[in-house]
């Protein structure tokens, strides 16, 4: 028989989890969710909120981390909020995740071609051009964004904005 033990002991390594949360489009709903995380000492690595086809609901993608028990608590605590309709741990199964970044990078004579070449390799788009900069749009999993940023850093990144992760579960491939 398994005895009880202190669950907060990190028995499992903290893992990243991507939660998909459907919540009533009510004032205060978002603040309830963020308040829950700060009040209970859970962390939010990224948070992305957007409308859904049903205008009475909002969709929230939340990246957090913790061991199995912490994630279980987070999901239960979210579900306990009166405004929360549904919580899915997208990262439990197969899923696609994407993030977008807009990166304003220095592009002077000697580096302009280099930046374009990298855009090409990573399939980024140039969305704005000025005599001394390119602004490029990069989309992909977080790892790709990181890679692009690492490579552009030596050239000189002037500014970055990122969307935060969004994710969706893959449909079953078999019947």
């Amino acid at each position: 028989m398994a005895g009880p033990y202190f669950i907060k002991i990190q028995e499992f390594l903290p893992m990243k989890h991507t939660l998909s949360v459907l919540v009533e489009n009510e004032p205060g709903a978002l603040s309830r969710i963020t308040g829950l995380f700060s009040g209970r000492g859970f962390n939010i690595e990224s948070l992305c909120v957007a409308p859904t086809l049903d205008h009475t609901m909002s969709h929230l993608t939340l990246v957090t981390s913790g061991d199995e028990y912490i994630i279980e608590q987070i999901i239960k605590q979210l579900n306990r909020l009166v405004d929360v309709y549904k919580v899915v741990d997208v990262s439990e199964g197969e899923f696609v995740e994407r993030e977008m970044a807009l990166i304003k990078v220095k592009a002077e004579d000697e580096t302009r071609a280099e930046v374009l070449r990298m855009c090409d390799i990573f399939r980024c788009k140039v969305v704005d051009v000025s005599p001394k900069t390119y602004t490029i749009e990069v989309t992909g999993p977080e790892s790709k964004l990181k890679a692009v940023m690492e490579l552009l850093k030596p050239i000189g990144i002037k500014e970055i904005t990122r969307t935060g992760t969004i994710a969706i579960q893959r449909e079953k491939k078999t019947l």
């Binding site: 033990y5 669950i7 306990r80």
Partner: peptide
């Protein structure tokens, strides 16, 4: 309340 369960101790 499901949040009370498995919050502090492991439950069988």
């Amino acid at each position: 309340d499901p949040t009370s369960i498995q919050k502090n101790v492991k439950v069988d």
